[in-house]
Design a protein around this nucleic acid. Structure first.
Lengths: 258, 258
DNA sequence: CTTTTCAGG
DNA sequence: CCTGAAAAG
């Protein structure tokens, strides 16, 4: 099972840059996308459904803002939109698809970069989300694959300039601690598990100052899998040469027969 | 004296489409532009001052909105920004440059197309402007050349679809009457004077539905000159093949020796 | 720097 | 259909 997570920075923009052709080539079983930025009119996803994908969208209230969508070749057994908390669901941040072998939770976590108010909102979200996932685990929704733009990372290997970003949103001590705690609840960072402590592998680069060309990035898009799935990770990667957005797709391949 | 009036629909946009090269070619003595759409930062007009032009700007309060500018090769004897009425001056609609042989009044008249409130504002403006010009005449500011986007026209020859636009902003009976009255105060429509009742000559085409390609337009940009200047009109034209905007430049050449 | 909306035309 | 601002990232 090939699962991809990809922050598109606008679904329409990404489609205009050839997203559908790339999806047709790679043909992931499940494609989790974030920041779809749906407008007042419903988004046209026919370019992807025409490839045989089932499409599930969870949009924000505010036009052109946030929103997630999951595309899957197999029809899911169940689909759950949102997390039941309106302050988050109004921003279109969570979408769950349950399959026979796993449950894929697609999430777009808040960015704290626009100010202290949003950083506080993000931290509240992080704690809420950890509780929410524990509840899913307790309810037997498992094994979970939590795909998405986490907007944070854990170790100094996960960003090019860790020293100068000790207190930047996405790498504050509080967020790093949260990441450790979250993993300790029973998750495996599929990329790190597969590659070990390799440096310079990122999933996001600011559009400013040619950061991507110089690989000045952050690894903030993750595919965390239930520890029970770790032995089934056949492959994991950051697809840094795929460019439809300021993020790149991140991928995990799970082999349920292994 | 070659005078051009040109609604640029954004000075920066027009510059990006080669405005400066065109100005360098034509080299008008006076260039009156409208809808410069200055932002919070001062506009960079060095591309024009580098050609030897003196630059005078009258910007609106609201960033990115309205505003006029006049560029002249000769340094004017006097420059008057605005008309002394703050409700109009806040929108950057009037700029006067006095020269030895004439006074060039550059104006961007309100458009009434965004709703009845703005159409009412436009009609008030029209009456105010007529009074204002009479005061200038009375004060001996003469002979006047009133260049600009009038956002209205007078006769059925001035727009492609007069029948369906009898009550459209820019061609209401009230505005047509105003135009007649304004001319009766002592002005000559230089284009009409030079060409007579020719049809199909416009200065603005909506960007929608390929109107310009089909020449579905309006002649709403005018160079009205004091009747005393009419004998000095050597040439007048709509430069419809010059494209940096949804308007085209309009031109008059005055020969003060004739 | 880029996406989207929005006002304004 | 365009421009430019503004919010958000």
């Amino acid at each position: 099972m090939n699962i991809i997570s990809y922050n598109l920075n606008g679904l329409r923009s990404a489609l205009s840059k050839g997203l559908a052709d790339w999806v047709a080539q790679v043909r992931p079983d499940v494609l989790c996308v974030q920041e779809i930025k749906a407008g007042r009119e419903p988004l046209d996803v026919s370019a992807l459904t025409d490839l045989g994908y089932h499409a599930y969208l969870h949009t924000a209230q505010k036009p052109g803002y946030s929103g997630v969508a999951t595309f899957s070749l197999e029809k899911p057994l169940a689909v759950v939109e949102g997390c039941g908390q309106s302050c988050y669901d109004d921003e279109g941040r969570v979408l769950r698809l349950d399959f026979a072998h796993c449950s894929v939770l697609n999430t777009y976590m808040p960015s704290g970069t626009s100010g202290p108010e949003r950083q506080a909102f993000k931290v509240e979200w992080l704690h809420f989300f950890r509780r929410y996932v524990r509840e899913l685990q307790a309810a037997g929704v498992a094994p979970l694959v939590i795909a998405g733009d986490y907007n944070c990372c854990q170790t100094e290997l996960d960003l090019r300039n860790p020293k100068t970003n000790q207190n930047s949103p996405g790498f504050t001590p509080e967020e790093r601690q949260w990441f450790r705690d979250f993993l300790a609840d029973g998750f495996t960072d599929s990329f790190r598990h597969h590659h070990g402590p390799v440096p310079d592998r990122y999933s996001w680069w600011t559009y400013r100052a040619g950061a991507r060309a110089r690989n000045v990035g952050w690894r903030i898009d993750h595919l965390l899998v239930d520890n029970a799935l770790a032995p089934h990770i056949r492959h994991a990667d950051m697809l840094h040469d795929v460019v439809h957005s300021d993020h790149c797709p991140v991928q995990v391949e799970l082999d349920f027969n292994a």
